[in-house]
Amino acid sequence: MEAVQGARGDRVLFSSLSFNLSRGQLLHITGPNGSGKTTLLRILCGLLTPLEGMVRWHGHDIRSSASTHRRECTYIGHRDGLKAELTALENLQVNARMSGCHDTKVINDSLRLLGLWDYQDLLVGHLSAGQRRRLALGRLLVKRAILWILDEPFTAIDIDGRDIIEAQLISHLQGDGIVVLTSHQALSRPQLRERCVTVSLQ
């Protein structure tokens, strides 16, 4: 990522921001509310075009190699992207199929891992906010992308859930994955902290 300038509306949130991430690294973006954390993440995943500069993936501008970047990147925004009228299982099945995973075992394992196995036939509209967040993060487990971009992944999630997710982050990093996340809480596991680079937005 090079000299990126991001803005919402007419307001420039950050400029000349540059960093480099390599396999096995975690980037923790911090900053007060409204400092542009979500904007930065949306630029990284290609939803927003930066005002200046560019984001490179494998050395190529993500706008010119969009399909590779999209295939190797999973973005979990602050909205869960789940349909309230579908059950937990149906939601995960749709997400899995859209990311090219047709293996029911992977889907079932993900539900078990996220502690949603007993709730798989409930409509997502009837799940709690934390359970919905867990299900949204299930997208990571069925897609197995290299780059995970997570916007406040721990919102509404309990201590157990946080443990599960941090364990997944660690195994993803150990498997040469890359994680970019925003979070107001500090990361608790030392394995995460030693691989962590922090960028603070003002």
Partner: peptide, 17 residues
């Protein structure tokens, strides 16, 4: 409308299809 509001639309746009 509903896809836009619940964030599914972002995911559809970002999918590699």
């Amino acid at each position: 409308r509903s896809d836009y509001e619940d964030g599914s639309l972002e995911q559809l746009v970002l999918s590699d299809h």
